[in-house]
Write a protein that binds this DNA or RNA. Structure first.
Lengths: 232, 232
DNA sequence: CTAGAATTCAAACAATCGTTTGAAACGGAC
DNA sequence: GTCCGTTTCAAACGATTGTTTGAATTCTAG
């Protein structure tokens, strides 16, 4: 069997698992629930994937590979157009997060379900999940970090990393909690609001990225208040 | 027994559970691990709390009540000083998130452990967890929402709620993933970086809150590009 | 000191978990 | 039709889960 071509059973299991993991989490979802929803035999998971952990890995692999390839394509396009000149930070942010939010808006293909799962998995403590998540991300994140460093040469690189970190968190939470009962709003967020998420999130992220640099209180000389500088 | 005064056994169980839940999650942590670490008998959890779920609820209750009381105290202080005038948005944000980040910086009292757990719990899909989390937050969030509406009368209230949402996400992810292996950075974040988290996060959040409003593409007339306005 | 309540303890409970097994059913090649 | 590799199936596996039990122990008044 080819690696990319999936049998009916494999695909049905993956789709069912995606939905159930999103709704109840990895640990709380049992193989019997998955095989029940997929309408396949219980032993099919271990036959086709080997174990529950391997199923989870395969699930992330098929989506994350595609997602990060699209991100890198977008970045490649920007860089060839720029002919070596630094990119606009807003373009970089758009290439990284725009692709993700776009995937999250896709209801039919299951992209929405997956992105909610992914958003929650960022904070997953499980060892093996964090492991391959980091490896799947390493190339794309490395390329985007480099692009941001080049685009913002005056901002300390450590600061850029922190803000990248914050941006991922804002996006992850916005996507994962968007149609769940959120803490801030009592009214459930409907579908049109999901479509409006993209411009809202993007302007928030850019505002945060370009915020004045914090006046870090690292042993400041008395009486000399460090001035805040603008980041971008 | 008083409600606030805890027996040795109760407190030992709560402390052990907090640590283990943070490290492995709710489902993956067993009562035998908890009672083993706390050095109490296995049956002690069900004797003192009734069930594993009730233990989780009690764990959040003792910390969240304290956290939100401090937040409301800080807001009260600001409002009495202002004599009815609108507050500065930065002060409001500082009252809400500053208290949380401060608690996250507290290593000895277990505040750090709890805030990492809390940050992860925001995206927890479990029904009963989300339920009492929302109820514990409702009062404080309502007060802060009102304060932000008053402070930013020109910004659509829906937009403020979204940005509040984004801010919570950025904070939750920053705290919960700060000393775990993060996606963006290959080097583990050490303690001094945690102390510097506060000013970094705060300027990012304020930058996002005050970002130009997004040009929402809600049936725009052709040829008329909506102008971006400044939020604050 | 003693009676009675509160707490601790070892042991067992039923239920459910992921995984394995061996036979049955299916599929195309010859 | 026959063969053989692939896939499906019902059933069971051992292990582990949260919870309960009833006796032992500790604590607290009177």
């Amino acid at each position: 069997m080819s690696d990319t071509e999936l049998s009916d059973t494999r695909r049905r299991i993956l789709d069912a698992a995606e939905t159930l993991f999103t709704e109840h989490g990895f640990e709380a979802t049992t193989l019997r629930q998955i095989t029940g929803r997929a309408q396949v035999n219980l032993a099919a998971v271990n036959y086709h994937f080997g174990s529950k952990e391997a199923l989870i890995q395969e699930l992330f692999r098929r989506r994350l590979t595609w997602l990060n390839e699209r991100r890198l394509e977008a970045l490649d396009r920007l860089e060839t157009e720029a002919h070596g000149a630094p990119l606009k930070p807003s373009k970089i942010v758009d290439a990284f997060f725009g692709v993700a939010v776009n995937m999250a808006a896709d209801r039919e293909g299951g992209g929405r379900t997956f992105m909610r799962l992914l958003g929650r998995t960022y904070t997953e403590p499980s060892e093996f999940v964090r492991g391959f998540l980091a490896s799947e991300y390493s190339e794309a994140v490395g390329r985007f970090k480099a692009a941001l460093f080049k685009a913002l040469p005056d901002v300390p690189q450590e600061e850029i990393l922190w803000r990248f970190h914050f941006m991922i968190g804002a996006m992850a939470y916005a996507i994962s909690g968007a149609d769940a009962l959120s803490i801030v709003g009592e009214t459930p967020v409907d579908d049109s609001a999901i479509d409006a998420l993209y411009p809202r999130l993007m302007s928030f992220l850019l505002g945060g990225l370009r915020a004045p640099l914090p006046a870090l209180a690292a042993a400041p000389k008395p009486g000399r208040k460090p001035r805040t500088r603008r980041a971008a």
